[in-house]
Design a protein around this nucleic acid. Structure first.
Lengths: 125, 125, 125, 125
DNA sequence: GTGGTCTAGACCACA
DNA sequence: GTGGTCTAGACCACG
């Protein structure tokens, strides 16, 4: 997982989003255990409190749950849940972009062109 | 201009973005004067200092300039500047959306479908 | 005289400085009359109050004096006065530049090089 | 850092310039943390908001960056950035001085003499 | 009237 | 503890 400590997006959210995406993409499956607080904290080089906050966020969403003394696990509905949420995130970002372009006087074709450029850039990666 | 005081986006940025879009869309033209600090503050129901910070942001970007005792004016290159910036904002949002979808395991068609939905929703407004 | 309404330097100071330099350079001589408020205001396209403030500034410095009903005149010591002041202004600007360069870790040769560049640029005009 | 509250240069700019020079001179190095808002505010005897505005200025220039909850840090390109900017500041001041002298009828030798005096005065400090 | 700076003090998010 | 935002209200410079 890539963490950018200079980003204005809080680190705990970057971590939570990274895990959400990993679950949605099937990298972690329902029932499977997640990296422990300390392991993940070492991995991404942040304070364990920060990782804790990320896991709290995910638990509140019902994406993961903890079993005392056993660790953290992906919930049964975790993957569907994460996918649904990812789709909403994408939709929200697109809505914002479309709205911003529209407000600035761009027409539908202008906006579509920008989207195509964005898709092409991604495919070339 | 619509301001959402509960948004996580700072009010001063919401105001700055609103003006930027207005300039990009030609609502305010180069050389024209903008609403005074106090007038806009009353209009959007915030403290004049907050409006000033928004105008400050725009002045630093070269979108507007101030003449003490006279008021605030749209810079000559203001419209081009704002359009350019709006385009970049749209592109950044789309890039983020595409990236988020991709990370969550959505394929290009999934992502395109979400974009289409977003465009359709906008057109229906 | 060139006035830049977008400059952060107040217009009345730009006008006062312009006249000071003109007197120092001998464009206006002691005993000679200066353009009237209204004429100068029309010339540089500003409010007569602003020109008045510039003339006030100059009168306080003893560079010019007014004769009621007759107009404004350059004082006897005006040219020497203005030259002395110009020299001080130049010295102050150079002192600031030298100080700024020094504080930023530039050595004497670095600073001299910048000065030479500045002189060369002026000569080429 | 020396702050002159009676100067016409706003306090926040005096602070920003002081930090810029310190970075250019290598007193603070890339990656290193800067004094916290509150500490610096106590140090220079001004309101923390004023210090924040200074840091804001520097962050917008890319000289420093902030990490909420952690502190303020010198950017990787901070030193080069600051040096470049310092050079421009020196050049601007010299240009202004040369221009002022020229407008007042001083010739190149007069102007050079003032510069030499300025350099000598600095060396004697 | 205009914009610009500064203070005091509040509250929030983050680590 | 850190930085970030906002308000209220003061005072100044300018035109």
């Amino acid at each position: 997982m890539k963490i950018d400590p200079r980003s204005h997006v809080p680190i705990y959210l970057q971590i939570a989003d990274g895990i959400r995406e990993a679950v949605a993409a099937g990298i972690y499956s329902p029932g499977e255990s997640l990296p422990s607080l300390r392991v993940l904290a070492l991995d991404v080089q942040v304070n364990p409190n920060t990782v804790q906050r990320a896991y709290d966020e995910l638990a509140r969403d019902g994406l993961i749950y903890s079993r005392r003394g056993k660790g953290l696990f992906v919930a049964e509905q975790g993957k569907a849940n994460a996918l649904e949420r990812a789709r909403k995130t994408v939709r929200r970002l697109f809505d914002q972009g479309v709205q911003a372009g529209h407000s600035a006087g761009m027409d539908a074709n202008d906006i579509r062109a920008v989207f195509q450029a964005s898709m092409s850039a991604k495919e070339k990666q």
